[in-house]
Design a protein around this nucleic acid. Sequence first.
DNA 1: TTGATCGATTTTTTT
DNA 2: AATCGATCAA
Length: 732
Amino acid sequence: MDKLLASNNKKVGYLDSLNKEQYEAVCTTEGPLLVLAGAGTGKTKVLVSRICHILKNNYAKPWEILSVTFTNKASREMNNRVAEQIGQAVEGTWLGTFHSIGVKILRSNAELIGLKNNFSIIDTDDQIRVLKQLIKSNNIDDKRWPARSLAYIINKWKDLGLLPEEISQNNVSNFAQGKSVELYKEYNSLLKVQNAADFGDLILHCLTLFKKNKDVLENYHKKFKYILVDEYQDTNQSQNIWLKLLAMGSKNICCVGDDDQSIYGWRGAEVGNILSFENDFPGAKTIRLERNYRSQPHILKAASELIKNNEDRLGKTLWTEKEDGDPILISSHLDGAEEARSIIEICEKISKENSLNEIAILVRAGYQTREFEDRLLTVNMPYRVIGGPRFYERREIRDAIAYLRVVSQPSDGIAFERIINVPKRGLGLTTIKSIYDLSKKHKESLVSSAQKIISTDIIRPQAKSSLARLLEDFNRWISLKDQIGVRELLETILDESGYTDMWQKDKSIEAPGRLDNLMELADTLENFENLTSFLDHVSLVMENEKNESSEMINIMTLHAAKGLEFDHVFLPGWEEGLFPHQRSLDENGTTALEEERRLGHVGLTRARKTAQITFAYNRRSFGDWQNTIPSRFIDELPEANISFTDTSNNSDNNVFSDIDFNQDISNDFNQNYITFKELSNKQKTMVIGSKVKHKEYGIGYVIKVNFEKLDIVFEGFGKKTIIETYLELIDD
DNA sequence: TTGATCGATTTTTTT
DNA sequence: AATCGATCAA
């Protein structure tokens, strides 16, 4: 009885807890709708409630709703929250990222765009490897015209939804004397031969499919009665066309986004999409969500004032009814280590009365996390780095996956090439080149060419027999594929190929860890029914779920923080050059500056209760010290909402109200500081190989020196990282 | 073909 | 500072 009441309450509850604008956004189910939702205004709540509303009223079945998000994280959360609100898991909804939905569509229509339905998905790394080959085989100087640049150009075209033949004269870049379009064409046909698609293709192929096969598109029109799009400001042109084509049927498309949180311009996202929604979808209605339920007024005010400096925006006025709270604390520091030390000290204080999970350190660039990790390790506080080095990007994991890819899809030459000589089989560059040339000549896959080359005299007899053996192995594994489980398949391959052996014989420090990772990969495999679903997961999700339940401080980039919120947020590194980032300014000028500012806005609006901004006067980059000045964004924050503390020169708690941050406060001092650092670095007495003594661990030897932190191997205790002052040097 | 060594290059953000 | 790649000797 109680249960029934509870579920009844829930049924009504999903509409009751909405404010007026949210309610309107949920109930306007028919026709195109743009919801401009500022940070913390209940964007996800609206999307989730909207799905519930459609389902509860039986406007559509779960499989007639298409919900697209930008990240896997977002789609997972949406899925969970819908289930929570409905009271049970909802089966059959088309809920996922643009890319995963694209794959789903392509797998069932692969032949129509010239692929087989088990096509491989290649990532940026593979892509660059393919392009490198291409550049070389076209006799282009790859020093002058690096594969990375070509990848960038091609990806840009794909993001724009342009096929090689659709590129207009003024769009042609001068890459390799205008050969870029030709290379683009060649690259595409190479992928086709290998039965592979890159990220851009996952959307672009859909466009081709829809345009050339009206019946297919019509089927999707009949199917999808409602389309919902999250983070609409992040869509690129290709995705926007994709949406337009799909929405032509029902016209019931609801896009939720915030132009002030558009931070993926560098990846092709077009704020323009959100600005021109009403043109793209005639008869569209726009609803603004401006009431913020997250941050306290000082934070909200500061974030709003900051973003007002942008010209290219629709404009919203966020407001809140929350109590005042604390102003944003801004403090200066001598260098990055000092900054980290100081922030972690505050974290320790906060953690006495708060959950560590409610603390986040948001950095501009990935490499900044290091100083915080170092500090957290020394004070022994648990932390997690969100979006850090990825499990599936580790070398051993990629190798293992490459084996699986070839077994799953033998045309996948990109994967085959990766492991043809791993472990070492005496198949070096010459052999690979010969196979590659042959495959190019006959327009066939590398594996087919490899098979053929065995019966020729192109390569050395040794290489021939070695290659023959590898191909036999693959044939055997392929025939095993449908007979045994995926886990066993992987174990067999790793065993018989000698891959596991290779790492077991390897004496480097990382080797045992790599073996552990391979075991973990095998465990993961058990969760998948077949190889294809696992490989899709690897390429599209790229992360391995971990036990994230325990108490830890969160460290991540500002980009990774979008969509999240925390009670206490730290924003380190607000310095010119780092934030706004120099490279971004160099490449895209004012447009980029505005995007950097939006990043700042995203960062600040993650905070519920407190936000602290810090900067350092000295930062190390590319190995040497850089003298820095505070970020211009600090200057743009309203004085009434901030409080400045200068902790850079021992005069604690100096509070200034009107500092001109653009003036370099202590140039001479910093210059001296740098000299001092360099000297103390050179005068270091403990070097690699030094014998040292620690009062707890006894005698050990230095294996790594990182300023005052030394890695020591102790007898009986193994490797430890110790600060220099706790060690005593012993000369022998 | 392999392993070692030297030099170049990097560090923005991610599906 | 640390990784990656090109080059060269064995």
